[in-house]
Design a binder for these strands. Structure first.
Length: 891
RNA sequence: GCAGGGAUAGCUCAGUGGUAGAGCGGCUGUCUUACACACAGUUGGUCGGGGGUUCAAAUCCCUCUCCCUGUACCA
């Protein structure tokens, strides 16, 4: 009777609902609402980004939380946006320039024109990811979309900078920073990845200037020898004490340099003598400062040697120069030995090349509100899930270093500092700048440019992207929104940005927004491939979520992923799981289709409910509670699994199969009504529970099943979640628990019956009949259901049934169940089968007897456990007797 | 080095003291009137190794091995 297709086709349905939700403003947050607030700010993806599996996981979770909160009657703000991603975006446009003929660099284009180009690129290609998030079904308030460089947000970044500068927390100084020789910018410590590397350790002879001997010095970086200004030994080292104060000859760009004593040198390491190169090593820089040593910089910003005093190396790339310098040293007879050596090298997260410690003028931030930020998490004001991340967070805060916030980039927030033109050069070279300079009228720091811009020169640098995103939770909101929605409720993000972003947002929240930015932080797992590797473009192991959506539907993708996303550990992505999500959507669709094929439920005659009806409603009630509990604990996989197993196993496999006969033509109309009403109740309630994770199909079925029409045409998404106790309202609890027992007995008996059939290769035979010696009330209705479930012609109760010898039997909750064979069994096969079973049973009996023969077990274990064991033994023994008699009957 | 996480069926994972589970895969059947994206049945495990506590351990304790993730580094 139905014209509905047999298989669910998600694509059209999903697009339809996404449009409709938007059109009806379902995602819009009203700051004037009287409802309690629930809010999330999205971790803004890079504007250059495309959706990857991490985003899918992350945003599905946020969407579940947001949709569920709406169902619970909250006013929900899920605030979306994108991040300008300084380096990534700039690099993207530079790449385009490099492809031109002839290739160009940003310097060829010039700053202003280049920034224009990036904006154009952003307007044209940026924000693809926003469209993709919409395809995933994300219920963000898209009218409030922000961009970290838009006209509302950018001034906030400058304001924050200005305030911190005036407070003295932002300062400028000449410091050792992590320098990226490819991108030509400073990086923060967090952007440097310490990577285990196979290197060489070179031991080199530094001759004493007076010719009285030599000092052996080990280094991994011989190309920096020209910048050596001393050799240091530990003052307590008995081998070298007499050398301190003498001079040695620097082996390259030869010069006399002093031997100094410094605690920093470890006596046991290498030769115990350390070359000091303050310009190219962090700790050497400190040693140099302490000892008042000169700083000789022999590297260009792009990592080439700059040392005219050593013409053989001058101009070479740093790694070429490394080999060449060793050749020179060996030729001079100064190379003692070369060993393999494993050490950690700092690699730029962005350009993937070794960074250089480099002395340069940069802006730094002394973090504000560190104490408050640490306490907020320690005291549980902000709750981290899983909790163990709190430790990582605390550890980072303890050893926190000032943040290098300036970047030598053009794309980003330009540092809002201007220098008075005539003094600009001197000021830009000055090692420190403070508010005093501002008061003196030499510099200007502010959100808007100075009133007389022609007299000023703006600082060239831009701010680290994270310096704009750390104020995301509040700078994205206007005053009304802040009043209603700040602090936000949940933050959902990956643990990989706990320092970059989460920690900094907490500090910013306390400093600028008067309190914590969020109450809960849920750290998602990291999505890996089946080999456990991180998904990355270069490995090509990252599936394209849009392709997955096209093949499995957004709902299928969401469901499949959430079902395998554990709460504590990483998730290994397996496309099979997504396929299951799709299969589940199809199952749901077909169950609804089945209902639609039955027509309306009537009220006449009054429905007659059987135990199975009450039972499924009771199970749904339990599902409601466990779903609520799981979501309360942010256990999304438990939530998903509970929904899956209820629907597939309890509703479809058991309940629907048990009631199919109620729906047939000519059946009892009172039973038919009961069944239709129950199906409606289950579907209506279940769709509401499932909607947060599979919103599209639920909405579609909600409508096609007619639930929307009965609800004033309201979409499911703006319908409050019904209470669990509406499901069985008014039904006596004793009757329910009775129904529970009887239904469990029915399903269990059906299962035993099917197993009996299978044992005798009668699985597909529908003509078998079962005879039951009932131990529980076994009415005709139950008998009919049992026959239906077991695929039998009939199931009859006979209290004094005399089974022919050898009739297969099983003990069921309803009593002893027989499968009369009518002599259609292969004797030889039967004998073998029974023989094997007896072997197994004997083992079990022996095991059980041993346990019960153990006095300690009987004395110490709880009575129930012992009782259980006795029953088990009795079961096995009776089974054994049966089999033996069957064996005898075969002969 | 330090810190954290993990090791359970061929695969992905549940399972915090009381007969080892699910889904997928494999194998057998079945187009049984919602669903072959399905149904029925079935096959898979010394729960990483060793030791301990206990009547009883995948589960608690100790130890070892291997993987992962942070983090700190000495040339």
């Amino acid at each position: 009777m139905t014209e509905l297709p047999k298989a669910y086709e998600p694509t059209v349905v999903e697009e339809k609902w996404q449009e409709r939700w938007l059109r009806e403003g379902c995602f819009h947050a009203d700051p004037h609402s009287a409802k309690p607030a629930y809010s999330i700010v999205i971790p803004p993806p890079n504007v250059t980004g495309v959706l990857h599996m991490g985003h899918v996981l992350n945003n599905t979770i946020q969407d579940i939380l947001a949709r569920r909160a709406r169902q619970e009657g909250k006013e929900v703000l899920w605030l979306p946006g994108t991040d300008h991603a300084g380096i990534a975006t700039q690099a993207r446009v530079e790449k385009e320039l490099a492809k031109e003929n002839p290739p160009r660099t940003r310097f060829d284009v010039g700053r202003e024109a280049f920034v224009d180009m990036v904006w154009q690129w952003k307007n044209k290609h940026g924000g693809i990811i926003i469209k993709q998030l919409k395809k995933l079904g994300c219920s963000c308030d898209w009218e409030r979309e922000r961009f970290t460089m838009d006209e509302v947000y950018a001034p906030e970044v400058a304001r924050v900078f200005t305030e911190l500068f005036k407070e003295g927390l932002i300062y400028r100084g000449r410091r050792m920073v992590n320098w990226d020789p490819v991108l030509l910018t400073a990086l923060s410590d967090e952007e440097v990845i310490m990577t285990p590397t196979h290197s060489k350790l070179y031991t080199i002879r530094y001759k004493l200037a007076d010719g009285s001997g030599q000092l052996l010095v080990s280094t991994t970086r011989p190309e920096t020898i020209m910048a050596d200004v001393a050799v240091a030994v530990n003052p307590k080292d008995p081998r070298y004490g007499h050398l301190v104060g003498k001079k040695v000859l620097r082996p390259l760009c030869t010069a006399e340099i002093p031997v100094i004593a410094d605690e920093h040198v470890e006596i046991g390491f290498g030769t115990g003598a350390l070359k000091i190169t303050p310009a190219h090593d962090r700790t050497d820089f400190e040693v140099g400062m302490k000892n008042g040593l000169e700083i000789i910089d022999i590297l260009t910003p792009d990592g080439h040697i700059n040392c005219p005093g050593c013409p053989e190396l001058h101009g070479l790339d740093r790694f070429v120069a490394r080999d060449k310098s060793i050749e020179l040293i060996e030729a001079a007879g100064l190379l003692e030995k070369v060993e393999d050596y494993d050490n950690n090298v700092g690699i730029s997260q962005r350009s993937d090349v070794p960074i250089e410690p480099r002395l340069s003028m940069q802006w730094f931030l002394k973090y504000p509100c560190v104490q408050e930020a640490a306490e907020a998490v320690a005291k549980g004001d902000i709750v981290f899930r899983p909790a163990r991340w709190a430790k990582t967070y605390a550890h980072w805060l303890e050893g926190i270093q000032d943040w290098c916030i300036s970047r030598q980039l053009w794309w980003g927030h330009r540092i809002p500092v201007w220098y008075r033109k005539e003094k600009a050069e001197a000021l830009q070279a000055a090692t420190t700048l403070t508010e005093a300079d501002e008061l003196a009228g030499d510099i200007y720091v502010g959100v808007t440019p100075p009133a007389d811009p022609e007299n000023w020169v703006q600082d060239e640098d831009a701010l680290d992207t994270w310096f704009s995103s750390w104020i995301w939770p509040f700078s994205t909101m206007d005053a009304e929104c802040l009043a209603k929605f700040y602090p936000t409720s949940d933050l959902v993000t990956g643990p990989d940005i706990i320092f970059f972003w989460v920690a900094r947002m907490i500090m910013a929240g306390y400093r600028f927004a008067g309190g914590k930015p969020f109450s809960n932080v849920f750290f998602t797992s990291i999505v890996r491939d089946l080999k456990g590797r991180k998904m990355s473009k270069s490995l090509g192991n990252s599936p394209d979520p849009l392709d997955l959506i096209a093949r499995y539907g957004a709902d299928g993708l969401r469901f499949g992923l959430m079902r395998i996303a554990p709460t504590g550990t990483d998730v290994k992505f397996d496309e099979k799981q997504i396929e299951e999500g799709k299969n589940f959507a199809n199952k749901l669709y077909n169950a609804a289709r089945f209902r639609m094929m039955q027509g309306e439920a009537g009220s006449d005659p009054a429905p007659r409910f059987a135990p199975v009806h009450l039972d499924i409603l009771d199970k749904l009630r339990q599902l409601h509670d466990s779903v609520t509990e799981a979501l309360g604990k942010y256990e999304f996989n438990t939530y998903t699994q509970a929904l899956y197993s209820f629907f597939w196993n309890e509703y479809c496999s058991l309940f629907l199969e048990a009631v199919k006969n109620d729906l047939r033509e000519g059946g009892d109309p009172a039973l038919r009504n009961a069944t239709l009403l129950t199906m409606d109740t289950v579907l209506r309630h279940y769709l509401a529970l499932l909607a947060p994770i599979m919103p599209h199909i639920c909405e579609e079925l909600w409508q096609s099943l007619g639930f929307a029409a009965r609800n004033g045409g309201q979409p499911l998404m703006s319908t409050p979640l019904p209470a669990a106790d509406t499901l069985l309202g008014g039904v006596d609890e004793t009757r329910i628990s009775q129904a529970r027992v009887l239904s469990a007995a029915l399903y269990e008996t059906a299962n035993r019956a099917r197993n009996l059939k299978a044992e005798y290769n009668l699985s597909t035979n529908k003509n078998v009949r079962f005879v039951l010696k009932p131990a529980l009330p076994f009415d005709a209705d139950t008998a009919a259901r049992l026959a239906l479930l077991a695929g039998a012609k009939e199931a009859v109760a006979e209290a004094d049934y005399q089974a022919p010898k050898g009739t297969p039997t099983a003990l069921t909750p309803f009593g002893e169940l027989f499968l009369p064979l009518e002599g259609l069994v292969d004797v030889e096969a039967e004998r073998n089968r029974i023989g094997k079973q007896l072997e197994k049973i004997d083992k079990e009996i022996a095991k059980s007897q041993a346990k019960l023969g153990n006095a300690k077990f009987v004395d110490h274990a709880p009575a129930a456990v012992v009782e259980q064991e006795r029953a088990r033994l009795a079961d096995w023994q009776s089974k054994k007797t049966q089999l033996e008699s069957m064996l005898a009957a075969l002969v």
